[in-house]
Amino acid sequence: MLQYTIRRLIGMIPIIFLISVVVFTLAKLMPGDALSGKIDPLNSDPEYIEEMREQMGLNDPIPVQYVRWMSGVVQGDFGDSFVHKRPVMELIGDRLPNTIILGISALLITYLLAFLMGRYSGRFAYSMGDYLVSAFNYLALAIPSFVAALVAIYIFAINLGWVPASGSIGSGVEAGTLEYYLSKAKHTVLPAIVLGAMATAAYTQFLRNDMIESSRKDYVRTARAKGTKESAIYNKHILRNSIIPIVTLLGFDIANLFGGAIITETIFTYPGIGYLFVESVNARDYSVMMAIAMMLTILTLIGNLVADLLYGLVDPRIRLS
C-alpha cells in the first residue's frame, strides 16, 4: 500500500501542473486584472496606473507571470490579497477554521441521517416508512441548495428566531469563553443542517438499494437457513457489507468540505473559504481566487487517494498494488 500511495502522489504532480495552467489562464481571461480590484481607474492618474502595472509585473509576458506565480506556489507563497492588503495564506488561514467546523458538522449530519434512513429503508423496503424516506430524498435532490437555505433562514431565523441568519460569531463575544463557543455553534447549526441534509439523499438511496440487493444473496439465505436471527443477519452481514462503499465516499467528501459550501456560505454570509472565494471573484482579487482554486484541486486529488486507500482497508478482498 505504501508503494501504491507513493506512485499516486507522484502521479498527482503533472495533474496539478496542468490544472495550475488552466487556473492561471482562466484568471487572465477574466475581465480586468489584480490592479482593477486595488484602485479606481476613473479617479486615478493613468500614468500612476501604468507605473503600478509595471511594478506588479502585469506588463510582463504571460509565461513569465505564470512562472513567477508558480515559483511562489511551490514555496507556499500565493502572494498578497490586493483587497485585504494581507498575505493570501494568512487570509485563508483566518477563514479556514470556520469552513472546517461547518464542513465536519455537515458531514456528520449527512452520514448520520443517511445511515439511519438508509438502514431503515433497506430493512423495511416498500413499507410506508420507506416511501416517506424516498419522498424526502426526492425533495432533497429536486430542491436547489440555495432555495433550501433561503427557506431555512425565513423559517428558523426570521420567523422563529431560533438561530442567527448570518455570520459565524455574535458581536461583543470574547474569544475562548463558553459564550464564544456557544455562539459559534449557534451560527453554524443552520448552514450545517442545510448543507448536510441536502447531501443525504444520494447516500441514503445508495445504502438502501445495496441492502436490498445484499438481502437476496446466497450468504444471507444460508444464514437464514441456519436459524440466525433476522436482526443479526441485517446488522452483522447485510449492513456490514453494504456500508463499505459508503465509508469509501468519505475520501471524496474531503474536497466537498470546502468546495461544496460555496453557495451555502454565500447565502448565510458565513465567513469561510467558500464565501472568500466568491468575494475574491467579485473583487477581482486573483491571488486569493487562484490560491483557493489550487487548494480545492489538491484536496480533490487527495480525497480520491484517501477513498481508494479506505476501500482497501475496509474490504480485505481489495489489494492495492
Rank of each mutant, 00 (worst) to 15 (best):
Y4I: 09
T5C: 13
I6P: 02
R8W: 07
R8N: 07
R8E: 04
L9N: 09
L9Y: 05
G11Q: 15
G11P: 02
M12Q: 07
I13V: 14
P14E: 02
I15C: 02
I19A: 13
I19N: 08
I19H: 03
I19M: 13
V21H: 08
V22P: 00
V22I: 15
V23H: 00
V23C: 01
V23F: 01
K28Q: 15
K28V: 08
L29V: 04
L29R: 06
M30C: 05
M30L: 14
M30D: 05
P31N: 05
G32H: 00
G32C: 01
G37L: 03
K38C: 05
K38G: 00
I39L: 14
D40F: 02
P41C: 06
L42D: 12
D45N: 15
P46V: 06
E47F: 10
Y48A: 15
I49A: 07
E51A: 14
M52C: 00
M52R: 04
M52W: 00
Q55V: 08
M56H: 09
N59E: 10
P61E: 09
P61G: 01
I62C: 09
I62T: 15
I62M: 15
I62D: 08
I62E: 10
V64T: 11
Q65K: 04
Q65G: 05
Q65P: 02
V67S: 00
R68T: 14
R68P: 00
W69D: 11
W69Q: 09
